[in-house]
Design a protein around this nucleic acid. Structure first.
Length: 454
RNA sequence: GUGGGAGUAGCUCAACCGGUAGAGCAUCGGACUGUGGCUCCGACGGUUGCGGGUUCAAUUCCCGUCUCCCACCCCA
C-alpha cells in the first residue's frame, strides 16, 4: 500500500472544518489591521534560504528538501554576455562573473521553502515594493523541513505568517509596528479561543551588540564550561547563545551567572525595546521578559518574541517571530526594516479549545426522493433551497424511505424533506424535524423560509 | 541525526508458557413496500506494517526495515 510519506499527513473532514475556522478567524483579524495576503512560491532558489536563513543554521545545513533542477541558464548567460560586450566597447575589464558556456545547460538548485520570510523579502526586492511605502502582508501555507516527526512537528507543516516591511521612511522601524504585531497576535489567539498563552519578549539588539555580547559570553563561559553538560560544551563553540536553551538542572546555577544580551544593547536598541514595552502596557497585553530568549535564525534583530502554550508538550512554541532589519540588505536589496511572525498552524489547531462539532456545519435538510422517477424533482428542490444558502444533501430515488432516514440521521441533518408522488402532485412537501419528530406539509414556496426559521 | 515505546478488521482493543485470529463499534442486508434513532438476526471485513531467521508450529522469540508516539537536538 502506498502511504503518505514520513512526516506528512492527510487533513480530512471533519478536522478540516477546524482549520477553516482558524483561517477564517485569522483573515478577519488581519483585515482589521490592514494586512493583505501574499502567495509566494512553495519552492525557491536554494541560495535564497542559504543567504536569508543563514548558512550555518540547522535548517539550512540539514533540514531542507533540496534538489537540482536541470535548467538552461539563459538569463545569467545573457546578462553575462551584455556586460562583456559593454565592457569591450568601453575598453574596460568586465565586472561580475562571466558565466562559462558549459553552464548553458547546467542545473539550478531549488528548495522547498522551510519558512516564509525569505520568500517575502525576495518578492519585496524583486517587485520594488518600497514604492508602496509600508507593506503589511500575511500568508497561509505549507512549509517543509526534514526533521524527525513528533507531536506538533511535521515535515510538511502549515504556517500563518505575517510580515511588516518597508523603507525606514515608511515607519517600518518604529517600535509601534512591533507592538502592533504583538497586539495583533494576542487578539488573534483570543479570537480563535486559545487561552492560557504566554508572551515571552526580549530584544536581541543589533548585530554589533550581539557580537559584543557573544564575546562577553565566551569569556564568561571559558572558566566554567568544563563543569557543564556536553551539549553546552559543544554550543559554547558553535553558538554560545544556545547555551541559554539548556535544560540540564545542574547547569542552571551557572547559566544564571552568565551575562544577558540586555546589558549590551546600544542606546537606540534599548530605547526601541522600552517603547515596545510601553505600548504593550498601554494596550494591556501581558508579557514576560525573557532575557535569554534568542532566535534560531541569523537574520533577527532587536525585538524577539515567542508565544507558548502548555498543552503542546515539548514543542510548546505556538508561534515565534521578531524583527529582521538587516535581511533585505543581506539578500541584496535596499535597507528595509521589517518585523514578522509565524504561527505553527498545526500546533495552533492542537491547542484549540473549540471542538470539531462546534464548527462542522451539518446539512440543514436531507431530500429523500421516493421512487426512481423523482430524482429530477428532488434535484430541482435542492437547487432552489441551495440558492437560499441552505446546506442540502440529496438522496436517491432507489432508496427505501427507511434508508433515507438513516442516512439523514447519520449525517446530522436537521430536516428531512420527503418528495413522493403525492407531494409532487400537491406541490407541497412533507418536512420532518429529525430531532423533534414534528412533521408538517409545507407548500413549495415556503420551504426555504420554513427551514431557515429553524 | 541520537535514545526509548508501539504497530492485530475502517475505528477502539483482545488472544495465558509459541499451538488453527476474536469482540465491540462502524459498514451492508433482512425482520420492516411511504417514516429514523431502539431491538433481534445475518453478511462483509485480516499477507497480525513489511522482509528474513529460529521452531513440528510465530501475532507471540530474534534480526533488519518502514511508520507512528515520547524525549533529545533544533524549531513553528
Amino acid at each position: 500500500m502506498i502511504k503518505a510519506p514520513r512526516g506528512t499527513r492527510d487533513l480530512l473532514p471533519p478536522d478540516t472544518a477546524l482549520w477553516n475556522f482558524v483561517e477564517a478567524a485569522v483573515r478577519d483579524v488581519f483585515r482589521a489591521y490592514n494586512f493583505h495576503e501574499t502567495r509566494t512560491p512553495i519552492f525557491e532558489s536554494t541560495e535564497l534560504f542559504a543567504r536569508g536563513v543563514g548558512e550555518e543554521t540547522d535548517i539550512v545545513t540539514k533540514e531542507m528538501f533540496t534538489w537540482e533542477d536541470p535548467q538552461q541558464r539563459y538569463v545569467q548567460l545573457r546578462d553575462s554576455y551584455i556586460e562583456a560586450s559593454n565592457a569591450f566597447k568601453e575598453g574596460r575589464p568586465p565586472s561580475g562573473k562571466l558565466v562559462p558556456l558549459e553552464l548553458l545547460a547546467g542545473t539550478q538548485s531549488l528548495t522547498l521553502r522551510p519558512e516564509n520570510t525569505a520568500g517575502i523579502v525576495r518578492a519585496y526586492i524583486e517587485h520594488k515594493l518600497w514604492d508602496r511605502g509600508l507593506n503589511k502582508f500575511f500568508s497561509i501555507g505549507p512549509m517543509f523541513r526534514r526533521e524527525r516527526p513528533q507531536k506538533g512537528r511535521y515535515r510538511q507543516f502549515y504556517q500563518i505568517d505575517a510580515e511588516v516591511i518597508g523603507p525606514p521612511s515608511s515607519g517600518s522601524e518604529s517600535p509601534a509596528r512591533d507592538a502592533e504585531i504583538l497586539e495583533l497576535v494576542a487578539t488573534l489567539l483570543d479570537r480563535v479561543g486559545i487561552t492560557g498563552w504566554t508572551l515571552q519578549l526580549n530584544s536581541v539588539g543589533c548585530p554589533v551588540d550581539r557580537a559584543k555580547f557573544n564575546e562577553a559570553l565566551k569569556q564568561a563561559l571559558a572558566p566554567v564550561i568544563d563543569k557543564m553538560c556536553v551539549d553546552c560544551q559543544r554550543r559554547a563553540v558553535t553558538n554560545p547563545l544556545r547555551v541559554f536553551d539548556c535544560k540540564v538542572p545542574e547547569d542552571q546555577p551557572i547559566i544564571a551567572t552568565l551575562p544577558t544580551i540586555s546589558q549590551f544593547l546600544d542606546e537606540a536598541c534599548r530605547a526601541h525595546y522600552e517603547e515596545v514595552k510601553s505600548i504593550l502596557n498601554a494596550v494591556q497585553i501581558p508579557y514576560v521578559e525573557n532575557p535569554r530568549l534568542v532566535r534560531g535564525l541569523d537574520y533577527y534583530t532587536r525585538t524577539a518574541f515567542e508565544f507558548t502554550h502548555g498543552s503542546l508538550g515539548a514543542q510548546n512554541a505556538i508561534l515565534g517571530g521578531g524583527r529582521y532589519d538587516g535581511l533585505s540588505k543581506a539578500l541584496g536589496g535596499p535597507a528595509a526594516p521589517g518585523i514578522g511572525f509565524a504561527i505553527g498552524e498545526d500546533r495552533l489547531v492542537l491547542a484549540l479549545a473549540a471542538s470539531v462539532e462546534s464548527v462542522y456545519r451539518k446539512p440543514d435538510v436531507y431530500i429523500a426522493p421516493l421512487g426512481p422517477g423523482l430524482n429530477g424533482e428532488a434535484a430541482r428542490l435542492a437547487r432552489e433551497l441551495r440558492r437560499h444558502d441552505l446546506v442540502v444533501e440529496l438522496g436517491d430515488g432507489s432508496f427505501r424511505l427507511k434508508k433515507s432516514f438513516e442516512a439523514a440521521d447519520k449525517m446530522g441533518a436537521r430536516y428531512i424533506l420527503i418528495v413522493g408522488e403525492n407531494e409532487v402532485a400537491a406541490n407541497a412537501f412533507a418536512l420532518k424535524n429529525l430531532a423533534s419528530g414534528e412533521q408538517v406539509t409545507v407548500p413549495r414556496s415556503e420551504l426555504a423560509e420554513r427551514i431557515l426559521r429553524k
